[in-house]
Amino acid sequence: MNAKQTLKSIWKLKALYLIALPGIAYFVIFKYIPIFGSIIAFKDYSIFLGTLGSPWVGLDHFERMIQYPDFLRILKNTLLINFYDIIFGFSAPIILALMLNEVRKVLAKRLIQTVVYMPHFLSWVIISGIFIGVLSPSTGLVNNFLNWFGFESTYFLGEETYIRSIIVGSGMWRETGWGTIIYLAALSGINPQLYEAADIDGANRWQQTWSITLPTLLPTIMMLFLLQIGNFLDFGFERVDVFLNPFNRANGEIFDTYIYQAGLLQNQYSYTTAIGIFKSVVGLTLLMGANFISRKATGNSLY
C-alpha cells in the first residue's frame, strides 16, 4: 500500500482515528517520549547540565544497585508481596464472580455487587485509615474480638510479621469487587443451552462450573493474568507507603517506596532510574515468558 492509498484509507476512517486520537496522544506523551529520559540511568545526571549535558558513567548505577546492602531484602519483599497478590488477589475476583453467578435473586445480587464494589472508590489514604483503626491494639475491632476469647492485644502494624498480609489483604478488600466486573461480563456470554444440556446429562452445579464455566472463563483469566504479570515488580508506591512505619519497614519496603526515598527525597535521579529500568526488564521478561507458555498451553496470548 503506497502513501496515497494509506492517506485515503485514513480519511475514509477519519471518525475512528479522531476518537482514538486522545488515547494515542496519551501514550505518545506520557509513555513513549519519557523513554528518552531513561538514558540518565547511564549518566551522572545533574539538573543544571540537563539530560544531554550530564557525563556518561556506563553501568555504575546498576552496579551500585546490586551492591546496595539492602538490595536483596527489598527485592525479596517486592517478590513476596507481588507473589501473594497474584495467588490471593488475582484469584479472589474469579471466586467472587463464580459465587455471584450462582445468586438467582436479582435484587440480592445487585445489592452484593454494590457493597463489594464500593471500596474501589476509596483512596489508599482512607483505606489505610480504616485498617489502622480496625487493627488498633486498644480500640480495634480485631483486637477486641481476640480479647473476647482471652487473647492479648497485638499491634499488627507494629510488627514485621503481619505487614505483607495487611498490604495484600487491604488490596483484596479494595479491588476484588471491582475486578469481578470483567468476569461477570464473560459469564453473561455463556450459552445457557450448555448448562441445560449438562443438567439433562445429570451434571451437578460443581461439575457444570468445572466443565463449562471455568473453561469459558479461561481466555479472560489468561489475558488479565498476562497484563498483571507484566507489572510484577511495579506494585505501587501509594498502596504500600501508607502502611509503613519504622517497626515494619524491614518486611514492607519495596522498590517503589525505596525509589521515592532515594529518588525524590535524596535527589538520586540516575540511580533510581536504573532501578526503574531493572523493574521494567524483569516485567518484560516475565510477560514474554508467560505469554509464550499461555500460547502453547491454551492458544491464547497477547501477541
Rank of each mutant, 00 (worst) to 15 (best):
L59Y: 14
L72G: 04
F90Q: 05
N101Y: 11
L96I: 12
I127C: 11
Q113R: 10
I95R: 04
N101D: 12
P137W: 09
W124E: 02
K76S: 12
I74N: 03
L96W: 02
I74E: 02
T51V: 11
E63H: 15
H61C: 01
N82I: 01
G133W: 10
M65D: 03
P69G: 09
R110Y: 13
R64P: 09
L98S: 11
S54Y: 10
I66S: 05
K109A: 10
N77A: 08
Q67D: 13
T114M: 12
I127K: 10
I95Y: 11
L79P: 09
P137G: 09
V116A: 11
N77V: 08
E63F: 13
G50L: 04
L135P: 10
M65V: 05
T51K: 14
I47R: 04
N82V: 00
V103P: 07
M65F: 15
S54H: 05
R73C: 02
I130W: 12
R64V: 06
W56A: 08
L135I: 08
L75G: 07
I86R: 02
E63Y: 14
I126H: 10
L98E: 07
V106C: 01
F131C: 03
M118S: 07
F71I: 01
V125D: 01
S136L: 00
G133Q: 08
L107W: 15
T114C: 07
L111E: 04
F62T: 11
V103A: 04
K76I: 07
I126N: 10
T78V: 05
A92E: 03
S123T: 14
F131I: 07
Y68D: 13
S136W: 11
L122T: 03
G58W: 15
A108S: 11
G133V: 04
G89C: 06
L80A: 05
L75K: 06
G53Q: 07
G89V: 01
V134E: 05
L59Q: 12
I112A: 09
S123H: 08
V116W: 08
V57N: 11
V116C: 09
A92G: 02
I112Q: 01
D60H: 13
F131Y: 15
I127A: 11
V103Q: 11
D60S: 14
Y84E: 07
L107V: 06
F71S: 08
Y84A: 04
R64I: 05
M118Y: 15
L98A: 08
F62D: 04
R64A: 14
A92H: 00
Y45L: 00
A97S: 12
D60A: 13
V115S: 14
F121M: 09
I132A: 13
I112D: 01
V125K: 03
I94S: 12
L135N: 02
R110A: 06
I132T: 10
I127D: 10
Y68P: 00
M118N: 04
S128M: 06
L79R: 04
P119R: 00
L96Y: 09
G133E: 04
V116L: 02
S123W: 09
I47S: 13
F90S: 02
V106E: 14
G50V: 06
F121N: 08
V106L: 09
I66H: 06
S91P: 02
H120Y: 15
T51Y: 13
I86G: 06
V115F: 15
L80S: 00
Q67F: 06
F90E: 00
N82P: 02
G53S: 05
L135F: 12
L96G: 00
T114P: 04
Y84V: 01
F48Q: 12
G53R: 10
I95D: 12
G53F: 07
V134K: 02
D85I: 00
P137D: 07
